[in-house]
């Protein structure tokens, strides 16, 4: 499933607190990127029925380079503000407490044209609102993430610098609110614009704790869903429901393109 490329890079970054609840960060990146082709000079066992697929996700049967070898010089600036951030001051520092309100991030990334031999020329902006574990008392807790972004200039950029989405096509995977559980992770990357939303609610045993023996299992019921729309993937939706015990989760879900069902299945994480 994974597709690789090679990168030689230098990165400089800084993050600082500009005001209480407001973090600013700046990153400068220089990278030289190459495509890679799969090869093998030794096999324990040659299965004639199976071949490596190429490192180009769009041409799995032929090793067509997805992009030329190129240099990218870019800068990323972001601001993250947590509404109603409270903190504790102690002699050894300032400690943020969990906020009751969402966190907002705005980000600007510029791919410089011609600077230090750079072959890219793009400008990308994105905004996100996120909040984890919003308590609803006995009803459990909710988490959500909503984001939108746009390349306001996409004169020259190559696939590694596209906006990528956290997809997944495996049955077993590590959980992450940002992840689309039924979306291919390479096919729908965009160099234009997108809107995405994710939400999950954990009932923390609200229903199952009412069933006498079952409550001993300490299972937590959860439901969730995701939405993505971009020129490459219009109106994609997914919904899932499942049970969780500590860090083990099992869920069943459905994915749709508009009203058309794409896939359904179990996910374990």
């Amino acid at each position: 499933f994974p597709k690789f490329y090679e990168k030689t890079f230098v990165n400089l970054n800084t993050t600082r607190e500009l005001a209480s609840g407001l973090q600013g960060s700046l990153s400068l990146d220089y990278a030289r990127n190459h495509t890679l082709t799969n090869s093998s000079d030794f096999k324990f066992f040659d299965n004639k029925e199976r071949e490596f697929t190429s490192n180009n996700p769009f041409t799995p049967t032929t090793e067509t380079p997805l992009f030329p070898t190129y240099t990218s010089v870019s800068a990323t600036a972001s601001l993250t503000y947590t509404i109603g951030q409270q903190y504790i001051t102690r002699p050894d520092g300032k400690f943020y407490t969990e906020s009751k309100y969402p966190r907002i991030t705005v980000l600007y990334k510029k791919g410089f044209k011609d600077l230090l031999g750079s072959n890219v020329d793009y400008d990308f902006v994105k905004a996100e609102v996120y909040q984890d574990r919003i308590s609803l008392g006995l009803w459990g807790y909710s988490s959500f993430l909503v984001g939108a972004g746009k390349f306001i200039n996409n004169n020259q950029l190559y696939y590694p610098d596209f906006k990528h989405f956290a997809g997944n096509i495996s049955t077993i995977f590590p959980p992450n609110l940002r992840k689309f559980q039924y979306l291919d992770f390479y096919q729908f990357s965009t160099n234009q614009q997108y809107f995405e939303a994710h939400a999950e609610h954990n009932f923390a045993g609200f229903f199952l704790n009412k069933v006498p023996l079952l409550r001993k299992a300490k299972l937590e019921e959860f439901i969730g869903g995701g939405y993505l729309s971009s020129p490459e993937k219009r109106n994609y939706k997914e919904f899932y429901f499942g049970l969780q015990r500590l860090v083990l989760r099992v869920s069943y879900g459905f994915a749709y393109d508009g009203g058309r069902k794409l896939t359904q299945g179990f996910r374990i994480s």
């Binding site: 890079f9 990165n11 400089l12 800084t14 997809g167």
Partner: peptide
Amino acid sequence: ATVGASFGNGIFDLNNLGSMT
């Protein structure tokens, strides 16, 4: 405030999300 720097050469996933899944 934090300041960091890194450099290197390596093989990365094409979607840059740092995970194969």
